[in-house]
Design a protein around this nucleic acid. Structure first.
Length: 719
RNA sequence: GAGCUCGUAGCUCAGCGGUAGAGCAUUCGAUUCACAUUCGAAAGGUCGAUGGUUCAAAUCCAUCCGGGCUCACCA
């Protein structure tokens, strides 16, 4: 054994031995209890970051359950990450002076496919470097043919249940990227914009968006506002830039009488609030801004102007006509911007596919409430329910190419939509027209990932679904609880009439030393693979768990990883010490049984050695006692998902009790060739190796292979 | 505005009803020993504030103060 544990020399070899031996391959015919985790699929096209390294919690659970005798399956996969990936690919195209508009849809899709396929092994090898006990024979991709088939089926089933509808709704539209975003994807920033006070018929009202006034269809006031009470329900005449408008005055609670003048212009096609007001009062909607971010033909001479330019010219014209009363230049408000390119999000009306959420969410709430799905840490139960209560209908249409195209066809003749399981319909069942066109949109990535637990198990090996579903644990970051976890429960329950997982375990975010969010622009990013190369996977893994309360954010400093590397080395050197003593004792007495005999004979007389014998017996008894207490507590902690404390326990025992105290106390005995002491120490050490293995799989396996045959594995042992 | 979360040693955090803990940093000392990626020791905290429950509170409850995160909202 080397003086030091050198991870880079053994880790990859050890992982290969696990993969080659088929140790990680699960059987769906086992008599054992199934324990299954589906890996949250990382983006196929991107390198892993520290957040992915947090999946070490899953590895800990998987390896632990293997030790306690379950049939374990940890199923790997990759996500196509629709918009994200297309965005990266378009940047890649831009470097070659090309853009997505240079290709037709099929070519573009194929090009992205090749791009992703070339990059995907990198991410997968990174998962291997972290030591993850994944069954690679069951590796899946969200765009695999069979997965796509299931996604079609789900969409069709939702449609047939009456849970899918098509509606024109305001979407968060990025005019630069040419796609809409879900509410959850929009980033809000604080920004200063001028607030314009306009003469508006008999009123004065304040607005930051005078350029949308062409789309106004009403004026709203608060129902209790005395100033305007007499106007409610009346029609007013407004002098506009392109003629006079007639407009209704409505009363709505959403209007804040203390803001501005207490009068609001209602622009249903370009403002979320106004859209809601219009719905409540049956007001018409008038779109005056197009998807190109320019004003349209309804705006007269302003047609073709971009929003900012239009605003400038409108303000100018209003000023000339004396319709602009004053401008508040110091007005600050929150606006939505595209989280990728920073462009101001335009609320625009677009026909989209929607999932009716209410009944799905209510079912999910029941499941969580009754603990059919349990949450760890416990506080997330309440948070999950709260999210589900506030869920709005889900827009699943995305205007990107890279994704699963929606299996919906429009009859150009009778305007009827056909939803299929993916096969192209020959003709319209209603009017028999053959003039059909498929929807150009693809599904929101979350729509396919919401089906991931059952979609994977239904498409790997025959029998997998029956044996492993519902899966045991879903482990992921708490920040995607609403995006992903909640939706998996909703869709999973609808499609399988069962929960997709029995337990949800959520981990926190990794921040830098000062508690700052890691980001490339701040330059404080820690690359997990760098750390693996420098300190070993064991050290990185342990540092992510050690001393961290489950579900809390943590600050990670490189020093901590170094500290854990030292621990790995300590574990190695305890093994080295026992191994060396074993060799010395065995070589001194070529026959170990004779050695034992000789030794016990020697102690039979009442020489001072007798006293020593009593002492070491006492110490051995003590070390066993302490260890059995340790193990009992360990099992309890592991079963309660308190992994950090379990690791802390082993760390403390192995280093500061076993090595610093017991070995020191018994060193003299070992020098005397006391093989009984050696055997006992070795047993306790081995037990601790197994307990430590889920956290630090490489060093523990490396030591195991030294003491046993090289082709043996600690994973064949049990706890 | 709402929800969640945190406030414990210089820094980062565990502990969460019964004599204040870890890692890193600091100071002093050891070293032919499995490990200098080591060992021994020291220093360092009225556990954010106030009130309450209790024989007993860092730990439970209430209020407040101060960070952080998420969501919602002002035309």
């Amino acid at each position: 054994m080397d003086k030091k544990f050198i991870p880079s020399q053994v880790e990859e070899k050890i992982y290969q031995s696990w993969e080659k031996s088929g140790l990680m391959k699960a059987s769906n015919r086992s008599k054992k209890k199934p324990f299954c985790i589906i890996l949250p699929p990382p983006n196929a096209n991107a390198d892993l970051h520290l957040g992915h390294a947090m999946y070490v919690y899953e590895d800990i659970m998987i390896r632990y359950h293997k030790f306690i005798g379950d049939e374990v399956l940890w199923l790997p996969g990759a996500d196509h990450a629709g918009f994200e990936t297309q965005y990266v690919f378009e940047k890649h195209l831009a470097k070659q002076d090309k853009s997505r508009f240079d290709y037709d849809r099929e070519t573009l899709y194929r090009k992205i496919w090749d791009f992703v396929n070339a990059n995907r092994p990198r991410m997968e090898n990174q998962l291997r470097r972290l030591g993850f006990f994944l069954d690679w024979t069951r590796n899946k991709f969200t765009l695999d043919q069979d997965i796509v088939g299931i996604v079609y089926k789900t969409f069709k089933a939702l449609y047939e249940e009456g849970l899918i509808y098509r509606a024109e709704r305001l979407v968060n539209y990025c005019t630069k990227d040419g796609t809409s975003f879900s509410d959850l994807e929009v980033k809000y920033i604080e920004r200063k914009d001028p607030l314009y006070y306009l003469n508006y018929g008999p009123f004065v009202l304040a607005t930051v968006r005078p350029e949308t006034k062409f789309g106004d269809t009403a004026v709203a006031v608060h129902p209790k506002d005395k100033r305007y009470k007499k106007w409610i329900g009346k029609e007013i005449l407004v002098d506009g830039l392109i003629g006079k408008f007639k407009m209704k005055v409505v009363a709505d609670e959403a209007v804040d009488p203390n803001f501005g003048t207490g009068v609001v212009k209602v622009t249903p096609a370009h403002d979320f609030n106004d859209f809601e007001i219009a719905k409540r009062h049956g007001l018409p909607s008038k779109q005056v801004i197009g998807f190109d971010g320019k004003l349209n033909e309804l705006t007269g001479l302003y047609q073709g102007l971009k929003i900012n330019e239009a605003r400038r010219q409108v303000v100018e014209a209003l000023k000339k006509r004396g319709l602009l009363l004053k401008v508040d230049e110091d007005y600050s408000h929150r606006i939505g911007v595209c989280y990728r390119c920073g462009t101001t999000i335009e609320p625009l009306p677009l026909a989209q596919w929607w999932v009716k959420i209410r009944s799905l969410a209510d079912n999910s709430i029941k499941l969580i409430d009754k603990d059919k799905i349990r949450f760890y840490p416990r506080r997330f139960k309440k948070i999950a329910i709260q999210w589900l209560k506030n869920f709005h209908d889900w827009n699943i249409s995305r205007q990107v190419v890279w994704g699963i195209r929606i299996p919906a066809w429009l009859c150009k003749n009778c305007r009827e939509w056909m939803i299929t399981d993916g096969t192209e319909p020959k003709e319209c069942p209603k009017c028999e027209s053959k003039n059909l066109q498929q929807d150009r949109d693809t599904f929101d990535t979350w729509f396919s990932s919401a089906q991931w637990p059952f979609a994977t198990l239904q498409t790997t090996h025959k029998g997998d679904f029956d044996f492993f579903y519902p899966t045991s644990v879903m482990e992921t970051g708490y920040e995607i609880l609403p995006w992903w976890v909640a939706r998996m429960i909703m869709i999973g329950y609808l499609m399988t009439k069962d929960v997709p997982f029995r337990t949800v375990f959520l981990h926190g975010m990794v921040r830098d030393k000062q508690g700052q969010k890691m980001s490339k622009s701040k330059g404080n990013v820690i690359d997990p693979l760098d750390m693996v190369n420098k300190y070993g996977a064991d050290a990185l893994r342990a540092s992510l768990v050690f001393g961290v309360k489950e579900g809390n954010d943590q600050s990670l400093a490189e020093e901590k990883i170094l500290g854990m590397r030292n621990f790995a080395n300590k574990v190695w050197n305890i093994g080295r010490f026992i191994w060396m003593n074993r060799n010395v004792i065995l070589s001194e007495a070529k026959d170990p049984s004779r050695m034992r005999e000789k030794f016990s004979n020697k102690l039979r007389d009442s020489s001072p050695a007798k006293r020593v014998q009593n002492d070491y017996k006492k110490i051995l008894k003590q070390v066993h006692n302490e260890h059995s207490k340790e193990k009992k507590k360990y099992l309890k902690l592991m079963d309660a998902y308190k992994f950090s404390q379990a690791l802390g326990l082993v760390y403390e025992f192995l280093w500061h009790r076993f090595a610093d105290y017991y070995i020191e106390e018994l060193k003299e005995e070992l020098r005397n060739g006391n093989i009984e002491v050696l055997d006992n120490l070795q047993n306790v050490y081995f037990e601790n190796l197994k307990m430590l293995h889920p956290f630090m799989p490489f060093v523990t396996e490396a030591v195991w292979k030294v003491f046993n045959k090289d082709d043996s594995s600690i994973l064949n042992e049990s706890l």
